[in-house]
């Protein structure tokens, strides 16, 4: 199946197409891209796209009602919805330090949910 993508590696923003091609060295044929990094990006986008997720969680006893959080690394893109559901039901108590782990090993990815500020 052919997919159209916009490369985000550099400001060029190449519009490219990618489709499976068993004869190609990496198993995919990428057209419209102008560099190697872009090709790698495109292949990753179709094989195992990942995103870092940032959000907030409820916090009790702090100066603000919400604590900003993020995943310590990128998580599979298709897990974002589930991850938001976990984040939405989380509530933490003041004080929290920046970098403090709030949820461990999300979806067995070795990625944690961490506080992104002290509050």
């Amino acid at each position: 199946m052919k997919r159209d993508l916009i490369c985000i590696v550099c400001p060029m923003g190449c519009r490219c197409s990618i489709e499976e091609d068993t004869s190609a060295p990496k198993g995919y044929k990428v057209t419209g891209i102008t560099c190697k990094r872009g090709e790698d990006y495109a292949i990753k986008e179709v094989t195992e796209p990942t995103r870092m997720l940032t959000s907030t969680v409820r916090i009790e006893g702090a100066r603000l009602p919400r604590l900003p959080v993020r995943t310590s690394g990128a998580i599979p893109k298709e897990r974002i919805g589930e991850c938001m559901a976990l984040i939405n039901q989380l509530q933490v108590r003041h004080p929290v330090a920046m970098g403090q782990v709030l949820l461990k090993n999300l979806f067995d990815t070795n990625v944690n949910l961490i506080a992104s500020r002290s509050l």
Partner: peptide
């Protein structure tokens, strides 16, 4: 920065991807 909770800060200065509050802190 305190309200910019998304990532993408600090790639040049810290060589890592931080959120706004982390960059500020």
């Amino acid at each position: 920065l305190q309200q910019c909770i998304h990532n993408g800060f600090g790639l040049h200065i810290f060589k890592e991807e931080l959120t706004g509050p982390e960059y500020a802190e």
